[in-house]
Write a protein that binds this DNA or RNA. Structure first.
Ligand SMILES: [Mn+2]
Ligand SMILES: [Mn+2]
Ligand SMILES: [Zn+2]
Ligand SMILES: [Zn+2]
Lengths: 130, 130
DNA sequence: TATTTCATGCAACTCTGTTGCATTAATTAC
DNA sequence: GTAATTAATGCAACAGAGTTGCATGAAATA
């Protein structure tokens, strides 16, 4: 039998979860750090984010800039299982990365390729900045 | 009048261009460095890559791992202008990132969003590793 | 409350990428 | 070919994101 690691609720975790669920956009670790009011060390932020990822509460989006951002899971297609294959939009003016949960790109993989995870990012100008 | 910067052909540039055009897959800077046989400094590689990017000879793909990889432009839809909106596939076993130039995802951006650049990445298992 | 197990802080480290500046090399004009 | 011009390079130093080891602190549970 495999003993599962217990899921523990800590101050840092609750705080970070709240920061992300209140945010309209996906946030990078430094951004989260800024909003964390020194509740914990930056290393702890990374570790909490990892846990939230594995527990399926949040998902991540790597931008064209190579920066990883995190967002809480809202309408992540919970109908057909929990998927994170929606589009992310990165504004070149304000720098914000937005989950477009309703936009799921359509494509056909060539024979032999097995998909496990998807990451779709479009950069440009967002409605606020356009 | 705006004086354009002249395009100069140097040993490092030719070498790096060749490395990329001979590669079947997209390469990261460290990978390029490995294959460069000490022809130049690593900083020069970054600078050459920037130039090749701006000159439209290569394009880049940021993986889910946040690592930037470069690939020379081959069938990048030169019919309808030079686009780089094809899919990239990242194998979780061998780690290689492949340009799938023929696969262009279809989607519809919500009103107000203006697209300028796209990055589509799918990770999973490639034909060789499957 | 005692025990167990996980989470945290801190320091040190790795990796990717960038910048300043003096030197070198490719173009171009002569 | 030679000189003048301007871009490319090397090197060192730096910046930022993310990771790791280890001692300490805090949840969960019994
Ligand atoms: Mn989700
Ligand atoms: Mn191209
Ligand atoms: Zn914007
Ligand atoms: Zn593979």
């Amino acid at each position: 039998m495999v003993k599962e690691k217990q899921v523990r609720s800590t101050a840092a975790k609750q705080h970070i979860r709240e920061i992300l669920s209140k945010s309209e956009t996906a946030m990078s670790q430094p951004e989260i750090l800024e909003h964390s009011e020194g509740i914990c060390d930056r290393v702890t932020i990374y570790r909490v984010l990892d846990r939230l990822l594995h527990e399926g509460e949040i998902h991540r989006a790597v931008g064209m800039d190579g920066i990883t951002r995190y967002a809480s899971c809202r309408q992540c297609d919970h109908d057909h299982g929990h998927q994170h294959d929606h589009l992310h939009f990165s504004c070149e003016v304000c720098g914000e990365v937005t989950c477009l949960e309703k936009v799921v790109p359509v494509l056909k993989l060539p024979r032999g390729y097995q998909a496990r995870e998807a990451s779709y990012m479009i950069s440009g100008i967002c409605p606020d900045c356009g």
